[in-house]
Amino acid sequence: MATLLADKYEARKAEVNERFEQLRANEEELNRIFAEIYHMVGEVPIEVEDKYVSVARIFDTAEEIPESYKGNKYVRTRRDEIVSLISYAVGCMFGRYSLDRDGLVLADQGDTVDNYVAKVADGDASRVSFMPDADNVLPITDDEYFDDDIVGRFVEFMRAAYGAETLEENLRFVAEALGGRGTSRQVIRAYFLKDFFKDHCQTYKKRPIYWLFDSGKKNGFKALAYLHRYQPDLLARVRTDYVHEQQERYRAQMSFIDEQLSSAEKGERVKLEKQRRKLSDQLAETIAFEERLHHLADQMIVIDLDDGVKANYAKFEDVLAKIK
């Protein structure tokens, strides 16, 4: 059944904000009781200030948050709620979560999609509403180059979770909450390219469970992988199945532009030359990245989750995004 994300958001906001006011009322009632017990009515404050209520309160935008709430770490905005939804969607893409079952699904070292199907649907893949990514690699590039591109997979998730009829309207709602220019998909892509990993690291206190392979500032190649599904051949697969393919696409696009430049008018030539420089920079970046990746891939590194995220992440720091 088709569902509007906007309606879901409004219902959640109403529920959360009602809980906020109820907790405030409870705390004020306790203050009155204790003031009466200790004969301090009129001497101690009964009212609880907004910033001291220790449960979530949602505002549509940061600009709407009153000064009285400043300092309350539980205050959230519509963007925060959408970022949480996107995080959950990525979890579903990796099989950490499922639309068909509550709680964690894949959270043991070396878990596979077969484990997911067994836990969620008793081994029957046809009963799974949304299948996790098969190879534990979700590419994030500035255009849709791969079949399992993370933006494409997010669109599939939204269709599975909320229905096909409301898909475009729901994507617009997500994009408006995130902010930015362009179509809904372009805004969502920009979020994955620039902000998702930063938000993820903040949520997980600089101990990310979704690792970001990152070639550099030119966005030549990025991809997420789920720590709990790590296998020693992961880097080799990223290198051969994704980085090499991306390099060939850049070369093909540059060759196509070279053909167009031979007959392009002056204004169009400037545009094409700019595009070619960008592609050339991205290709050069991925070539350097591929060399670093190759070096680590040949080692077939084995990790132990018991060592912790920080120790394991450090083993791959030459090819992973910096944690800030």
Rank of each mutant, 00 (worst) to 15 (best):
G152E: 10
D114T: 14
A134M: 07
D147R: 04
N136G: 12
M158D: 00
V151S: 02
S126H: 02
V137T: 12
F157I: 04
P132R: 08
I150F: 04
P132G: 11
R159T: 02
Y116N: 08
F157T: 07
V113M: 08
V117I: 15
K119Q: 13
V120N: 02
A118V: 12
K119G: 10
N136F: 08
V117H: 02
L138A: 05
F130P: 01
V155C: 09
R127N: 07
V151C: 06
A160F: 04
N115C: 12
A121G: 03
A160C: 11
V155P: 10
P139Q: 01
D143S: 15
D149Y: 03
N115H: 15
A121F: 00
N136M: 09
A160N: 08
E156D: 15
D122T: 04
R159F: 04
V120D: 00
D149N: 12
G152P: 06
G152H: 06
D122N: 15
S126K: 02
T112K: 08
L138Y: 03
V151E: 01
D124L: 07
D148L: 00
D149E: 06
F146A: 10
V120W: 05
D147F: 01
A121M: 01
V128R: 06
R153T: 00
E156G: 12
V137K: 10
A121S: 05
G152V: 05
